[in-house]
């Protein structure tokens, strides 16, 4: 009986807490949708590099890198569909459009973090949602102009994660500015700390363009 009493007391406390949170219009972490974009769950693989335009780089050979979109943009916009990729064999400059497509139907473009020659593209990512961010769904393989430049424009993995978390804060500010009342738009979670996944692409063409300007052009 004592065992039953203690077990029930424990459960009752959990249930009370659930209702206390609900009365404050908050959600217990267990009942948040799995698609919450929260700061600390951002992942970035070791040994990868990250540019400030949210393109990751993985060294293949001395001057050859695999490039793709990072988790931050994928989760901030969700539903990213790439329609065009820079063509194979072309030479591109830093800041040229690397991929373009739509996010939730709003047009968006991603820019090359460094100049070089496109040696291979991944056509598998065309016209579908990006899911396996750091592996299968890579974008292009780029032979960079200058190896030294890479060190300038990209973060090491450890710093990249911290930087992405600071970008998260910036994103929250961005959303607050772009929409007068983000709560009503359902963009931020009730606890105020997290952002709904794909918050950016829920808004207008104008906001996506502003996001592109503020976060992707670096």
């Amino acid at each position: 009986m004592v065992a039953l009493f203690v077990a029930l007391t424990f459960i009752i406390f959990l249930v009370i807490d659930f209702f206390v949170l609900r009365s404050q219009k908050k959600v217990h972490p267990a009942f948040m949708p799995n698609s919450v974009f929260d700061k600390s769950s951002i992942y970035f693989p070791g040994k990868y590099l990250l540019s400030k335009g949210h393109i990751w780089l993985q060294a293949l050979k001395n001057d050859t890198y695999k490039l793709g979109l990072d988790e931050f943009v994928v989760r901030a916009m969700n539903n990213i569909v790439i329609n065009t990729i820079a063509e194979e064999g072309t030479k591109i400059k830093k800041g040229d459009v690397l991929f373009s497509g739509t996010a939730g139907g709003h047009p968006v473009a991603f820019y090359a973090p460094v100049g070089g020659t496109v040696s291979q593209i991944n056509t598998n990512i065309l016209n579908k949602n990006i899911e396996d961010i750091y592996n299968e769904d890579w974008g292009v393989i780029l032979q960079v102009e200058s190896q030294a430049k890479i060190q300038e424009i990209a973060f090491e993995a450890v710093k990249a994660k911290a930087w992405m978390q600071s970008e998260f804060k910036r994103l929250k500010d961005f959303l607050t500015i772009q929409t007068a009342e983000p709560e009503l738009a359902g963009l931020t979670m009730a606890d105020g700390g997290n952002i709904a996944e794909g918050a950016v692409s829920m808004l207008s063409d104008k906001v996506v363009a502003a996001f592109e300007n503020d976060f992707l052009k670096q």
Binding site: D17, L21, H28, P29, A30, K39, S40, S41, G193, N194
Partner: peptide, 15 residues
């Protein structure tokens, strides 16, 4: 971890 997420506005390391 859930308790911390609930009380300190911390994310969950789901993986």
């Amino acid at each position: 971890s859930y308790l911390s997420a609930r009380s300190f506005n911390k994310g969950l390391e789901m993986p």
